[in-house]
Design a protein around this nucleic acid. Structure first.
Lengths: 348, 348
DNA sequence: CTGTTAGCGCCTTCAA
DNA sequence: TTGAAGGCGCTAACAG
């Protein structure tokens, strides 16, 4: 006597359907999944009726082994609860589902060792597409292993798309982190700002590095600089932004007019820290971010930032993956747009 | 001559590894995946070395058909870019990965027809677990079909977990929407508020309905009511909240002291609408939400809300799914906690 | 402990 | 157009 509860019934198989419909396995297969219409309408209908009666659902795994390919997109993100990644994921899932793909998701927790392990594990699914949305780092050893793994994956027919800078030799959705930050700096100078502080991620984070570089270069064009002690490096998260602002405050930033955080969640955290310290964002100190995640237009003051069309980024990634393979690897550049809001009022 | 680029190499199979290592298929299988150590260490090492040399990754689909079961958790959410869902997803993914499960994700776009279709499609993956995080509705016909589909899934050995109220006859992570809203109302009355307006989702949305009910009952305990024209029904999104506030403003809400939006993203949207209309949240009008999504503590004024431990909710869902099946279906109730912040200052 | 041999559920030649 | 049969990559008895 088993203690297992009502788990005895197995899912109906194609074989069951064929028997129920009184046709061969092959005919059943063709009526239910075969692409071209190579089956008598009468049969086809009988099979479909039988399938419905039995509640048949094709076993995707079995189809995968038989066909030697799947209809799945594997997506690797840093942290799905971060609006940056969840917006990209929304785009990926939307586009993938439209093309009949299933998406599986893995989270690196922003750890490149873990990212490598995940990619390896994900390959077991034999996905048609592997999309890396996590931020690239300059952590050489693990990057090389990653490239090797991804190259192997491509050589067996898979497609890989990277969302970031063009650091890796694969199709990529190119985010203009450098240019966006540079233009942001220019606009800010135009508004009358002269003295800045920067809250950056760890130096090995390429996204962060490029944004800082762009920002500094943008300032340099106007002969402005940011003293080294006004650039702090912290976690690429809300709490990191908070901590970064606290650190700046400890150094003393009474004369700083504007704090640039390299992403919006950090900027939001920084605003809270500044406010707790008695500085009022948008009034006694300006703040700018990067990404334009959904909430920042609703906070007070609304945040000046560089907009990335995150949903589109996700969609582009799957378009790229589903398009014919090209020689050197294709890039889809994505426009970034400076959006000035109340957190950076013009200085009179 | 083929135009297909470097897609010719097939992934190495277990067979390749066995040959490379000079052992049988079975031995290779046992050394690489077989749970117990039933293989000579010398052989095991040779096999592992061969696997590494070849870059072998087990084909999960093949394993699935051979074993008759997968290691995947299918997660259905309403909208992954909504912080409510992405936080839950983070919990699900975290817990699933810890147990060696892969998670696949589908998005209903809050459409119950679509949810049904997705569940049907998802069954094709033969996941071990199916988690529904989308909000339940009282839309009878499609709910019945959904229950039928889920029941069939369970009868073939799958586990289903629902996150919501206990509307469906499955294991559920129970969110105390009613109680949380009721306690919120009580606290608000304690702070001195007497005249309220409510921005609700569409009436068929169970989550929304329960929160409104709880809120009204909480007020009723203090002999307070909300006039029908002060309760508006809109989309369960940021834009819905914005639109709801606009609608309230059109009706005239000069005497309203506090607006309760049934979730945080709606509250955030409502705050923007109120502000645009010249009302200052936290000063000339109070606002409260529900969920305690990450950003609301950082907005200004920080939002009073009812906290749901969203990450834990996701984790509980997979714990439930992985625990032994029980007779009537288990429930894990999740505490909700009222969090008073600056958006609802005490009225003198 | 190891190898042989059936399958798992499905697709896809190959004849008929 | 239809059916029979082999094969996809792997696991799980079953003997040895």
């Amino acid at each position: 006597m088993s203690t297992r509860m009502n788990a005895g019934v197995r899912s109906p198989t194609l074989h069951d359907v064929a028997r129920e419909a009184g046709v061969s396995l092959a005919t059943a297969s063709r009526s239910l999944n075969g692409s071209a219409r190579k089956v008598n309408d009468a049969y086809r209908e009988r099979v479909q009726a039988a399938a419905a009666r039995l509640g048949y659902t094709p076993n995707l795994s079995a189809q995968a082994v038989a066909k030697g390919s799947t209809m799945t997109v594997a997506l690797v993100v840093g942290d799905i609860s971060d609006p940056y990644f969840s917006s990209i994921a929304a785009g990926v899932i939307g586009a993938a589902e439209e093309s009949g793909f299933i998406v599986t998701m893995a989270v690196t927790a922003r750890d490149s060792e873990r990212e490598l392990a995940l990619v390896r594990a994900l390959r077991g699914q034999r996905p048609r597409v592997l999309i890396l949305a996590g931020s690239r780092t300059s952590d050489e050893p693990s990057q090389q292993a990653l490239v090797a793994e991804l190259t192997a994956f491509e050589s067996t027919g898979g497609r890989v798309v990277v969302i970031s800078q063009h650091e890796l030799p694969f199709d990529t959705v190119l985010l203009d982190n450098y240019g966006g930050a540079r233009r942001l700096a220019a606009e800010l100078v135009g508004l009358g700002y002269r003295r800045f502080a920067v809250i950056s991620g760890v130096p090995s984070l390429l996204t962060s590095r490029d944004r800082v570089l762009g920002f500094l270069d943008g300032l340099a064009e106007h002969d402005l600089t940011v003293p080294a002690d006004r650039i702090v490096h912290t976690e690429f998260t809300r709490d990191g932004g908070f901590a970064g602002a606290v650190e700046l405050l400890e150094h003393g930033i009474d004369d700083v007019e504007l704090v640039f955080a390299v992403n919006d969640v950090m900027a939001v955290g920084a605003m809270s820290a500044l406010r707790e310290a008695g500085r009022i964002p948008g009034e006694s100190i300006a703040v700018a971010g990067f990404d334009d995640i959904p909430t920042v237009r609703d906070i007070t003051p609304a945040l000046t930032t560089v907009q990335i069309p995150l949903i589109d980024v996700g969609r582009h990634a799957v378009e790229l993956a589903l398009a014919p393979r090209t020689a050197g690897g294709t890039e889809i550049p994505v426009e970034t747009t400076v959006v000035i809001r109340e957190s950076t009022p013009a200085r009179k």
